[in-house]
Design a protein around this nucleic acid. Structure first.
Length: 159
DNA sequence: GCCAACGTTGGC
DNA sequence: GCCAACGTTGGC
């Protein structure tokens, strides 16, 4: 039996890269480069599996919120932008022989008709324990419970 | 291993 | 632009 599908949330600043940018990519997919946090890296490197579903979250936006759903289309491999001196996320301690940072590919499944604002998510009882809503939470790649994912999908379906 | 200093995230 | 809450770095 295949392992149960897992659910995630990944943040992006729409001024840098938005869900609309993802929609314009060939095959609507891209590599999720630039994550430079160990906990977030570990989720991508060790836990994310093909077919897992991802909530795409717009941070540092007006308003911030969940913009749509994507799917893991390629499991982890080294984030090659860490080797590029000219890249914003260059890390001299990451080498090809011993890569420090990893990424996955995601493919867009659905752009919500309307973004679901963070402010609204905070009012939904079923989401009370979401990592995103925890005070001081900054993790840019985080696990989401199935119940939470389904709740957000249903909110999107009704809008 | 402690912890001060510094850098970053991200809501507001 | 502010700033609270974090994460990382590096001296000791």
């Amino acid at each position: 039996m295949p392992p149960a599908k897992q659910y995630w949330l990944m943040k992006t600043e729409p001024s840098e890269y938005s869900i609309q940018d993802l929609a314009k990519e060939p095959h609507k997919s891209t590599h999720w480069d630039g994550v430079r946090n160990y906990q977030a890296r570990n989720f991508m490197r060790d836990k994310m599996k093909l077919g897992d579903l991802v909530l795409v979250y717009h941070s540092n936006a007006a308003p911030p919120g969940v913009a749509g759903i994507a799917e893991i289309s390629q499991e982890s491999y080294p984030d090659f932008t860490s080797w590029d001196k000219n890249n914003k996320h260059f890390d001299p301690k990451s080498t090809q022989a011993n890569p420090r940072w990893f990424m996955v590919d995601i493919q867009l499944k659905e752009t919500f008709k309307h973004l679901i604002p963070l402010e609204h998510l905070r009012t939904v009882p079923a989401l009370a324990k979401m990592e995103l809503l925890r005070k001081g939470s900054r993790l840019s790649v985080q696990p989401v419970r199935k119940k939470e994912f389904d709740t957000i999908s249903q909110i999107a379906a009704k809008q």
